[in-house]
């Protein structure tokens, strides 16, 4: 059999996918990033398990009780700031869908500002506690209390840096598939922080008032 007819043969049998397109880059990237976010959720699960274990009265080590530490009204302010930021990022996604660069950058900026408000509120709350001598080193309960909220705040900080990077990339690159998948990943990241915050707000702050 000649080489040519053999390959004709292979083609008719459908042995090879000659026109292999490569895979969907954006879809693959966001899937991997979502898996990463889920591992981060597992980190939070472990932290919440720790929180549960260290919320017994013996874990206060004679220090302040949760009710004396948490300030739910204040935390509600943080909640609203974060939700606004998340909403603004949603706006950025709508702008992306419309291909509107200016609106996208504006929305990202708004999301950053609201994120900054969240961080500012969190900072002054922690400041207040530190001044009252309520520090992570004071008891097992306080260790995990601060551990949880600081880990969450760290995410907000990282998200804001990332937003800054994306603003620059959108301005210099436009909507290439690399920029687009990163914007979607950042959406997953940012919106996920709101989900985690619901748990933090509920279990640490709201329920903290009756511990």
């Amino acid at each position: 059999m000649s080489v040519m007819s053999r390959s004709e043969n292979a083609r008719s049998l459908g042995l090879w996918d000659r026109d292999h397109e490569g895979h969907d880059v954006i879809g693959t990237r966001t899937f991997g990033f979502w898996l990463y976010m889920l591992t981060d959720a597992m980190v939070y699960a472990a932290l919440f398990a720790t929180f549960g274990v260290l919320s017994h009265v013996v874990n206060l080590a004679g220090g302040p009780s949760p009710a004396a530490v948490v300030h739910p009204v204040y935390a509600y302010g943080e909640t609203v700031a974060l939700f606004v930021s998340v909403l603004a990022y949603g706006g950025a996604m709508v702008a992306l869908k419309a291909g509107n660069k200016a609106a996208l950058i504006g929305a990202l900026g708004a999301a950053m500002v609201a994120g900054g408000v969240f961080l500012g509120l969190a900072y002054s709350d922690i400041e207040r506690l530190f001044h009252a001598g309520i520090v992570p080193q004071a008891s097992g309960y306080l260790s995990i209390f601060f551990g949880l909220i600081l880990y969450h705040a760290l995410h907000i900080l990282v998200g804001m840096v990332w937003m800054l990077v994306m603003i620059v990339q959108v301005m210099t690159r436009g909507f290439t598939s690399n920029v687009v998948y990163r914007l979607i990943n950042l959406r997953l990241f940012w919106h996920f922080q709101a989900v985690i915050w619901v748990f933090v707000f509920t279990f640490v702050y709201l329920q903290g008032t009756v511990l």
Binding site: V53, L54, N59, L60, A61, P136, Q137, G140, S143, G147
Partner: peptide
């Protein structure tokens, strides 16, 4: 693996920052 990361990070926190996640006293477990 994320759970192990937390497990070790809390120990590191105890060792480096003086927190009380696993200490015998001060409300650690």
């Amino acid at each position: 693996f994320p759970v192990l990361m937390v497990c070790l990070a809390l120990l590191a926190s105890d060792r480096y920052f003086g927190t009380h996640f696993y200490t015998a006293g001060m409300g650690g477990n």
